[in-house]
């Protein structure tokens, strides 16, 4: 199954050029059953990434453009009265999909944001007192625009905490962009992506993640790293949820590297993407200053 996952990775790399690292991290986040926050300018390929991921994994995909008048019901769905059958029937919202791209999440009202974040955390929604489970896997890729803050409601730190990773795709390098321009058939390539891995296989892979071995020494290192953030004035402390997220994503990272154990390097690889938006909610995704400070200041005797 891992080889198929690597095929997925390869084909993603053919669609989004020059970003192998971000693609691996996105897959890592998916494997770790976390949600992804992409912070990028428009046109950097966020939608493409989400779409490509859904296509190559054979997952159902919806995209919601968040606006300030988007209501929770628009997102999770609502009971609609059918005049013909004279009864209410449930009209599922876009949240009932396996990959949900929540575009410009910071444009929506806090109420709508909360509805989404609740769905993300609980993996279920309650409508009119009825609880409906969301499909599995349920993977949210939210994007937010770092530059244009007018009329936006930035996510508070408690809600940022719900996203396992915060990534930025960033500008492609010269060669990649050259390639992009030369073969201007991005959209067609996306449609060409075939399903490499079915949902069951993905679920099985996700279930392998917790079984990746993490030695006591490694856990101690991770805790030292996390502890270092506590009792400091220059950053917010990392919560136990954050340390769980670090461990889980490090395990997923190790799995992607085809290892059955987590190494200190895995932790160091994923740490900035898991930690930075929790340490400083106001920072931008390109910046990993505080997490680098922590990494530098925590001696690694492993």
């Amino acid at each position: 199954m891992l080889t198929q996952l690597h095929h997925v990775e390869q084909s993603l790399n053919q669609v989004i050029l020059g970003k192998p690292r971000q693609i691996r991290l996105a897959l890592c986040c998916l494997l770790a059953e976390g949600h992804l926050l992409l912070e990028d300018l428009p046109g950097m390929g966020k939608t493409t990434l989400a779409h490509a991921l859904a296509n190559s994994l054979g997952l159902s995909y919806r995209r919601v453009q968040f606006t300030n008048d988007l209501l929770p019901g628009d997102l999770v769905g609502m009971n609609i009265y059918d005049t013909r059958s004279q009864q209410f029937h449930f009209q599922a919202g876009p949240v009932f999909s396996q990959v949900l791209l929540a575009d410009e999440i910071n444009r929506a009202s806090p109420k709508t944001q909360s509805a989404l974040l609740e769905a993300m955390e609980e993996k279920q929604v309650s409508i009119d007192g009825e609880t409906r489970p969301l499909p599995k896997p349920f993977f949210v890729i939210a994007t937010q625009n770092p530059l244009f803050h007018a009329g936006t409601s930035p996510l508070p730190e408690s809600q940022l905490d719900r996203f396992m990773f915060r990534l930025s795709l960033g500008f492609p390098d010269h060669q990649a962009e050259h390639q992009l321009l030369k073969h201007d058939n991005n959209q067609s390539r996306l449609t060409l992506l075939t399903e490499q891995l079915n949902t069951e296989q993905l679920r099985a892979l996700q279930q392998q993640v917790p079984q990746v071995h993490a030695s006591d020494a490694l856990l101690d290192y991770l805790l030292a790293l996390v502890n270092n953030s506590r009792h400091r004035s220059d950053m917010l402390p990392l919560s136990p949820r954050a340390s769980k997220a670090i461990l889980r994503s490090a395990k997923a990272f190790a799995l992607l590297e085809e290892r059955s154990y987590v190494s200190a390097a895995d932790v160091q690889q994923v740490f900035p993407y898991v930690a930075e938006h929790r340490l400083d909610p106001a920072s931008s995704a390109q910046d990993s200053r505080l997490s680098q400070v922590l990494l530098q200041q925590t001696p690694c005797q492993l």
Partner: peptide
């Protein structure tokens, strides 16, 4: 506090490990 494998390696390579930044994993 140091695991055994680390102790073993760092004993043999003690001269070199002076160059290792504290935060860098040994591997």
């Amino acid at each position: 506090t140091q695991p055994q494998a680390y102790r073993l390696l760092s004993k043999t390579l003690s001269a070199m490990l002076r160059h290792k930044p504290a935060h860098q994993p040994l591997s």
